[in-house]
Design a protein around this nucleic acid. Structure first.
Length: 464
RNA sequence: GUGGCCGUAGCUCAGUUGGUUAGAGCACCUGGUUGUGGUCCAGGAUGUCGCGGGUUCGAAUCCCGUCGGUCACCCCA
C-alpha cells in the first residue's frame, strides 16, 4: 500500500497512548485490580464485541442508538440488512453487565454464592465526546451476584423471610460501596473532595406513592426522571413539571426529611450496614435525587460525585437481570468506574503520582543504568548489561555519543533509574545509588566469577 | 444526533487595521565546560498556521465547507 497522502488522525473520541499515558492507564488499572482482589473479588472478562441481540434484551431503543455496530463483511446478507436499516449482527460492548449476566447464568449452579467478580477492559459508546466522556474508555466493573444466605431463601414471600433477604442484600450492597470507597481512599481522596450519594428505588417509590393521589408504573418512572433532573432544573421549572404530573413536592420532601430525621432507623439499610465496615459514614449520604438512568436498577442506587466533574462511578442493585438472561432469579449488585473522569480528577486534585512513583508501582522503573565513559569500555558495558538482564533486572544504557559522565548521569536520573554503574576500568566500577546520591567503589571482575561482586552490591542496594 | 465557542512547533502561547523568508518559552538534538544528576555556554532541527475550497495583486488573519476539541441538550446501560 502506498503511504497515505493525508494524515489519518485517531477516530473521534479515542486516544493515542504515548509512554506516559500508557503508564498512567496501567497504573490506574493496577490500582483497580489490587483493590478488587483484596476485597475478595475474582477477575473475569468477556468478548469486546457481542451479538447485538444481547444488548436488545433489556430496554431497547436508547441503548441501540449508541452502539458501535460491526460485522465481518464476509456475509453479503449482513450488508443487505444494514442497508435496509437493520442493526448489524455484532456490537462493540458498551457495558459489561449483559456479558456478566450471561456468564453467570451459564454456570450459576457451579459458582460460589455470593459470587464476587470484577472486570477491567475497554468499552465503546457512539456518543458525542466531551470532557470526561470518550467513545473508547477503560472501565472497572465490580459485582456481587447472589447473597450470603441459601438460594432457597432468596425469593422468600413471608415477612420474616423478606426481612432476612433485605438484610443480606444490604450487606452485599455495603461490600460494593466499601470497595469503591477503599479505592478512592487509596488514591488519596477524602470525603471533602468526593461524596457517595446513595438512594433506594424501593424506598423512594414508597415515598412517592405517599405524595401522589394514584401511582401507576408509568407515572412512577416519570417522577424518577423528574427527580433525576432536580439538581439541573430551576426550582420553578421543577415545581411546574411536578404539578403537571400530579407529584406533590412538598409532601415528598416532608416524607424524605421525616425519614432522615428518624434516628432510630437510618433511611437506608445499606448505610447502616456500611457503618459496620468502619468509619465510612462521612463519605456517604442519602440523596433521593440519585436515580441512575432508568434501565434495570431495582433497589439501592449510588453515585460517586465530585463537584465540577461528571459522576466518577455509579451502580446499584439489579435483582431481575440474571433471569432475563436465562438464569434463576438472582439478586445482584454492582458498580462501574471509567478511567476518563477519575483520571481528570486525579490530575485536578494533584493526586496523580509522579512519573517515578508511577513507574515504580507498575514495575517499569529501571533498576540499573550502565555508563561506559570511554569507547574501550563498551564491550564490558554490553556484557554487564546482558548479565544484569539475565539476573532479571531492568538494565539500560545510553545510546548517545557523549562520554560525559555528568550528562549520562543526568540521562539516568531522567529515566528514573535507581542505580548507576560507572565502569571505571576493566576491573573496577562505581555503583551509585541515584535516590540517595551516594556511591561506592566495587571490584568489577574476579578471576572465576565476573561481575559477582557487582551483582551482589547492586542486589543489596535494590532490596533496600 | 442538535446548537454555541475554539483550532498557530511535541507542550503553553504571541503574531500589529489582510502585506515579503511565521516567533518566544519549555521539551528535543549536537558540541563545549566541572568525571558525578533536571547547571552553564554555544549551536541545531521542527510547522503543508487542523484540512479543503473561495474572495484578493497578496490570507495564519476575511467567507463557506469539513475534521477535531470543548460547552449545553442527550446519555450516564
Amino acid at each position: 500500500m502506498p503511504p497515505p497522502k493525508n494524515k489519518i488522525p485517531p477516530p473521534k473520541g479515542t486516544r493515542d497512548m504515548y509512554p506516559l499515558e500508557a503508564a498512567r492507564r496501567r497504573w490506574l488499572s493496577e490500582r483497580w485490580r489490587k483493590v478488587a482482589i483484596r476485597h475478595g473479588f475474582e477477575e473475569v472478562d468477556g468478548p469486546t464485541f457481542e451479538t447485538t441481540d444481547l444488548y436488545a434484551v433489556k430496554s431497547g431503543e436508547g441503548i441501540l442508538g449508541e452502539l458501535f455496530q460491526s460485522f465481518s463483511g464476509k456475509d453479503p446478507k449482513d450488508i443487505e440488512r444494514i442497508r435496509a436499516g437493520e442493526a448489524a449482527p455484532f456490537a462493540m460492548r458498551p457495558e459489561f453487565t449483559p456479558s456478566l449476566a450471561r456468564m453467570y447464568a451459564e454456570r450459576a449452579r457451579s459458582l460460589p454464592s455470593p459470587c464476587k467478580w470484577f472486570q477491567i477492559g475497554p468499552f465503546f459508546r457512539a456518543e458525542r465526546p466531551q470532557r470526561g466522556r470518550l467513545r473508547e474508555f477503560l472501565q472497572w466493573n465490580v459485582d456481587v451476584l447472589g447473597l450470603d444466605i441459601p438460594a432457597e431463601k432468596w425469593n422468600a414471600e413471608d415477612a420474616e423471610g423478606r426481612a432476612e433477604v433485605a438484610e443480606a442484600k444490604a450487606r452485599m450492597d455495603a461490600e460494593i460501596i466499601h470497595c469503591v470507597i477503599d479505592f478512592l481512599q487509596a488514591c488519596g481522596f477524602d470525603e471533602a473532595s468526593l461524596k457517595v450519594r446513595v438512594s433506594d428505588r424501593e424506598l423512594v417509590a414508597d415515598l412517592i406513592s405517599k405524595s401522589m393521589a394514584a401511582v401507576d408504573p408509568t407515572l412512577l418512572q416519570q417522577v424518577f426522571e423528574l427527580l433525576d433532573k432536580r439538581t439541573k432544573l430551576s426550582s420553578d421549572k421543577f415545581l411546574m413539571d411536578a404539578q403537571q404530573i400530579g407529584f406533590d413536592v412538598e409532601a415528598f420532601d416532608g416524607a424524605v426529611s421525616q425519614v432522615q430525621a428518624d434516628s432510630s432507623s437510618t433511611p437506608l439499610r445499606v448505610l447502616r450496614e456500611l457503618s459496620v465496615h468502619s468509619a465510612f459514614n462521612s463519605w456517604v449520604a442519602f440523596d433521593p435525587t440519585i436515580v441512575r438512568g432508568l434501565a434495570y436498577y431495582t433497589g439501592t442506587v449510588f453515585e460517586v460525585i465530585a463537584d465540577g466533574e461528571r459522576a466518577v462511578a455509579g451502580g446499584g442493585r439489579y435483582d431481575n437481570l440474571i433471569e432475563l438472561f436465562g438464569g434463576q432469579p438472582t439478586p445482584a449488585v454492582g458498580f462501574a468506574m471509567g478511567d476518563v473522569v477519575i483520571s481528570l480528577l486525579l490530575q485536578d486534585k494533584g493526586l496523580m503520582p509522579s512519573d517515578a512513583e508511577l513507574m515504580q508501582e507498575i514495575g517499569a522503573r529501571p533498576d540499573v543504568f550502565v555508563i561506559a565513559p570511554s569507547d574501550d569500555l563498551d564491550p564490558i558495558a554490553i556484557r554487564l548489561l546482558a548479565t544484569l538482564r539475565r539476573e532479571g533486572l531492568h538494565a539500560r544504557r545510553s545510546y548517545k555519543t557523549t562520554r560525559n559522565v555528568g550528562k549520562l548521569l543526568k540521562e539516568a536520573s531522567q529515566q528514573h533509574a535507581r542505580l548507576a554503574i560507572i565502569i571505571e576500568s576493566a576491573d573496577q566500577a562505581t555503583i551509585r545509588n541515584l535516590d540517595a546520591a551516594d556511591q561506592q567503589s566495587v571490584q568489577l571482575t574476579s578471576d572465576d566469577a565476573p561481575f559477582d561482586m557487582l551483582l551482589e552490591a547492586a542486589g543489596e542496594l535494590l532490596r533496600a
